[in-house]
């Protein structure tokens, strides 16, 4: 388990990560989402032991990560713009990583390269951006580390490859102790693959929950109530994140289970009511809106 406690990191006058506290459980797929500049990459780089936190701690199995080679043997970091040695080939990188990570599975790597249609002896600098991303993921998976930190890794992959990578992750989770931590803007992709979500905004953590729990506790309500006074009463009673009215139709995004929300609206004898689950993207927009990150504040 990764324990993050009151983590802070600033670059000059900019506070990139501010007081983040959360836990990442073993054997889940953890999605790290956030607004631009929310501190996702910084948090990931601190998790990888690249940069040292100003305050707070990151502990894996009770041990700090920074400058701790033994703990880092359990972590593989795939950056947004991965580095490969000049003029190197996939086999060269395999050779290098097999020195660094003692459990690196060369056979699995070569086999996966074939499956992904990547030439093991072609120079990496002739690869497309997507092919380089695929290669990074394969190297990361075959390193057989407990944690795989992916920074925007899915962005350059085509849908088929994304699916293939998801399958590999699923298979690895089943077969061994494996915890991918994925930072991305692509919320739809994360929704399909992640078990847990950490939502970052302006350096701080807005929420960190099980995705199903999150979806279970936040819903969108569409209803038509007989009186306007009842609408105001309903909004007061519920934990509303966002609401809007379109004619007589009231659209509310609120925290609560489907049953709780339906009960609440049923007491006001609605003419029409329906509770629908939110997509991750909608949850993201709603939560960040509460924190002041609203589209209308950005658009002129």
């Amino acid at each position: 388990m990764i324990e993050i406690n009151n983590l802070c990191k600033g670059f000059g006058d900019i506070q990139a990560v501010s007081g983040v506290t959360m836990e990442i459980k073993q054997g889940c797929v953890f999605g790290l989402v956030g607004t631009n500049g929310a501190g996702k990459s910084t948090l990931l780089r601190m998790l990888a032991g690249i940069i040292q936190p100003d305050e707070g701690s990151i502990r894996i199995g009770g041990q700090p990560v920074y400058e701790h080679a033994e703990i880092k043997r359990e972590i593989f970091y795939i950056s947004d713009d991965a580095f490969f040695f000049p003029n190197s080939k996939p086999v060269d990188m395999m050779q290098y990583y097999s020195h660094i990570y003692e459990n690196f599975d060369r056979d699995q790597f070569l086999s996966m390269l074939r499956k992904f249609g990547l030439d093991a002896n072609r120079r990496i600098n002739t690869f497309s951006k997507g092919m380089k991303k695929q290669l990074s993921v394969l190297l990361g998976v075959c390193a057989n580390t407990r944690y795989l930190l992916c920074d925007e890794t899915f962005d350059g992959l085509d849908p088929v490859m994304r699916q293939a990578v998801k399958s590999i992750f699923a298979s690895e989770i089943i077969n061994r102790e494996f915890t991918p931590i994925i930072a991305s803007h692509n919320l739809r992709e994360l929704e399909d693959i992640c078990d847990y979500i950490g939502l970052l905004h302006e350096g701080g953590i807005l929420l960190s929950e099980d995705l199903e729990d999150m979806k279970f506790h936040i819903h969108k309500l569409q209803c038509v109530l007989p009186e306007e006074a009842l609408e105001m009463e309903l909004l007061r009673e519920m934990d509303v994140l966002h609401y809007e009215k379109s004619g007589s139709l009231l659209l509310v995004t609120a925290r609560g289970t489907k049953t709780e929300i339906l009960d609440c609206v049923a007491r006001r004898n609605p003419i029409f009511s329906e509770v629908i689950p939110l997509t991750l993207e909608e949850i993201f927009i709603s939560e960040t809106e509460v924190a002041g990150y609203e589209v209308k504040n950005i658009l002129l």
Binding site: A69, A82, F83, I100
Partner: peptide, 18 residues
């Protein structure tokens, strides 16, 4: 002097000393 390379090397289980 290269952020990519710093991330690459410092993320690995090789200490700065080594």
């Amino acid at each position: 002097h290269n952020q990519r390379q710093v991330d690459f090397y410092y993320s690995q289980p090789v200490g700065r000393r080594e």
